[in-house]
Structure formats: structure tokens, C-alpha cells
Amino acid sequence: MNSSVIFVSLFSILLLSCSNEEVIQKETNNILPEIVEFSEDDTKLKFITSSKINRNFYSDTILLNGIVLAPPQSIFSVYSLTRGYIDDVRVYQGSRVKKGDILCRIKHPEILTIQQKFLSDYIQLRTDSLEYERQKLLLRDSATSIRTLEMAKNAYFQSLAVFKSQEKLITSLGFNAKNILNGSLYSDVVLLSPSNGVVSSVLINQGSYIESNTLLFTIQNSEHLHIEVFVSPSTYSSLKNIHTIYFKTISDNTLREAEVINISSFVENETKSIVIHCHPKEKSQNLIVGESVSAFAFSDSLSGYLIPRNSLFIFDDKEYIFIQTSNSTFKLIPVQVIKRNSSNFIIDSDQISGYPIVTIGAEILKEAILAEE
């Protein structure tokens, strides 16, 4: 009975020992030699090229799409302040105008009525003003009552309020109040452009009748246009520190620069993207509101070494390169790949500095390493 137990125990120990030897052997097999050394006259050296590569800063080019927009303060809506008939339309959609240019005229008998009422209100104000002053003098001589003075005062201030209201209407119509008081009446209302810009819409025709507060024109000031470009949330981290984008419009192939003013901190529901708000660095008359924009920007810089794709050696999911330590000796070192593309890698390692990196013939060294391994 005892001998049987001892046999089983010894057998278990032997199995465990064999298993451990296999694990140790397997782990040993996964350790790569670090050094590859050839004899000075080995012909393989002719097919291996090393180059000193300096650490640099590298950026990606990120393609963007966007649109030309006008801020709300650059869009001017021109309304009629009186009813009447449209006359002398001088602009059309797309016309460039300067502030103060004539857009059209409005004619109606009511325009004369407004001026006549203004004159009537002025006469009433003068009458009530004189009466108020007269009552103040009479009260001083005890020739009138305080009640009568108060009535004159109220009449004066009421007339003043009516006159000021009518004067404001006269001014808003573009009339000179002093000219009207001197007897020079206006036969029509002249609508002027409130800003430099482009007429983006004309909503009336020659001779058409319009009511008061009717929208007639829309004018866009092209001096303050901006660009909005859209990026996916996955690209956002690469563009957080950009200051400039480069863009072209569909109608004009000129490459322009725009300064990044703001990068949105949230994703828009409609586009599922993040908006970058930019201002063109140079003013241009060729930008059209609503026009599509193709743009690009350079991502945040990455510090590292740019090597050809075939210089990298991957083993057990780890990445290595070869550096040359002497004429015929090469060393395998681990690296971190920061960025990949179809032909190059950007890598980093604290063991590279000062040593040439094998850029051609790395496959020869790989074969030698694997043969030794």
C-alpha cells in the first residue's frame, strides 16, 4: 500500500518536472538574440544600408468639407415702412451695392398725408407751447388758477409726444424734418442700402403694390463671411490645437487660408459631426454664401523617427528595428509605432539616438535573427 503511494507521487513529480521543462524551453525559444554580427568580408553586408535618421515632428493631412456662411449681423433685411407702389427698382439679385445706394422708390398719396400730419402736429405743438408759457406768466401775476396751468401743461406735453412720434416716422422714411417744416415736401420714399454687400434677394417688381412692413430686399455683407467645416468625433483629438485650415470653393479654385476661431465641444445632431468655425485671413469678393468648401488641415505634430515600412520587424506581436553599432554588427531594439501609413511608419525609442537605422536589407537581418533563435 505504501509503495503504491510512493510510486504515484514520484510519477506525479516526474510529470510536473517534464511540464516545467517544456514551459521553460518554450519561453526560451521566444527570446530573440539582440546582436547580429557578420564577418567583415560577408557579401550580405553589400545588401544592407543604414541611415542616420533625426527625430522630427510630423503631421497628418486631414481632409475636411464645409460651407461658406454669413453671420446674422452681416445679413440685412430691407422692409417697407409705408404702403405704396414700387418705382425705379435699381438692383437685381446678385447686384453689388454700397451703403447708401438707392434700391428703389415707393410712391403713394399717403406719403404726402404723413408729411401734412407732421406739419399739423408741429403747429399744434407750437400753439400748446405758447399757451403753456402764457399760463405760467399769468399764474405768476395771480391772474389764473393752478388748475388751468396744469391743463395747459398736460396739453403741451401731449402735443410734444405726438410730434416726436411723427418726427421719428418722418426720419425713418428718409425725410429731412427741417426741409418739411420749411415747406419742401417729398413725393416718394427712397429706400437705401443699409450696408455694403450683395443683394441676395429681390422680392418685388416694378409697379407692384406693397403694404407697410413688407420684406423687399435681402443684402449680405461679404466683408465678414466665415467658413464652417465639419469633422468626425474620431478626428477631433487630432485637430484640437490647429490654428489654420486651407480651403477652396467650388466656383474658385484659389487656395486660401482661414484662421480657426472656435472648435465646437459637442456633436451636432443633424450632421453627427463637430463644427470648426473659421474666418478667412483675406477678404474676397469671390466667396458665395452657401457655397460648398473643400478644405484640409494639418493634425497635431508627432515627435519621432520616420522609417520605411519594411524596416520594421514584428515578432510575438512586438515591434522591432535594427540599428547598426559597427561596420558589421547590428542590434535589434524594441520600438513603439506612433503612426502608420501605406509606406512609412513613425516610431519612437530611447535607444535610437545617434545610431544609423537599417532602412534596406532588414529582411536579411530578420533571417539571421530567426536562424539563431
Rank of each mutant, 00 (worst) to 15 (best):
S159V: 02
R90G: 06
F38H: 04
K272C: 01
E211A: 14
N286I: 03
S265N: 14
S200H: 01
E270F: 07
L16N: 09
Q124R: 14
Y79G: 06
D252G: 05
S212K: 13
L130V: 07
N182C: 02
S238D: 07
P280A: 04
Q135P: 01
I13R: 05
K318L: 12
S264K: 08
F217I: 05
T325L: 09
L81W: 01
A155Y: 00
K178A: 13
K331I: 04
S39V: 05
S74E: 13
T244K: 12
Q93L: 00
I123T: 14
I346P: 00
E21L: 12
I288F: 02
I180L: 05
S80M: 04
S200E: 10
H243K: 14
I314E: 15
V189W: 02
K366E: 14
S12R: 04
I346E: 00
S59D: 01
S251M: 03
G361A: 05
D128P: 00
E34F: 01
N310G: 04
R90Q: 15
T82W: 00
H226Q: 11
L112Q: 06
K46G: 06
P280R: 05
Q116F: 06
L14V: 10
Q285T: 12
S145Q: 05
D121Q: 12
E228T: 10
L81K: 09
M151H: 05
S59F: 00
T148C: 00
I13A: 14
S292D: 14
I210D: 04
L181D: 05
T113D: 10
R309F: 07
T49A: 09
Y92R: 12
R340Q: 10
I333N: 06
I48A: 10
N286C: 01
S39L: 08
Y209E: 13
K52N: 14
Y92L: 08
L63A: 08
P233M: 08
H277N: 09
M1E: 11
K153S: 11
T249S: 11
P233K: 07
T82R: 02
S59A: 09
K44G: 00
I106K: 03
R140T: 13
E291G: 09
D121A: 10
I170V: 15
S299A: 09
Q93I: 13
K46Q: 13
L160Y: 10
R105Y: 00
K240D: 02
R96S: 08
V189G: 09
L332Y: 04
A152R: 06
K240G: 08
E133S: 12
I261K: 12
L103A: 07
L192Q: 12
A371P: 00
Q116T: 12
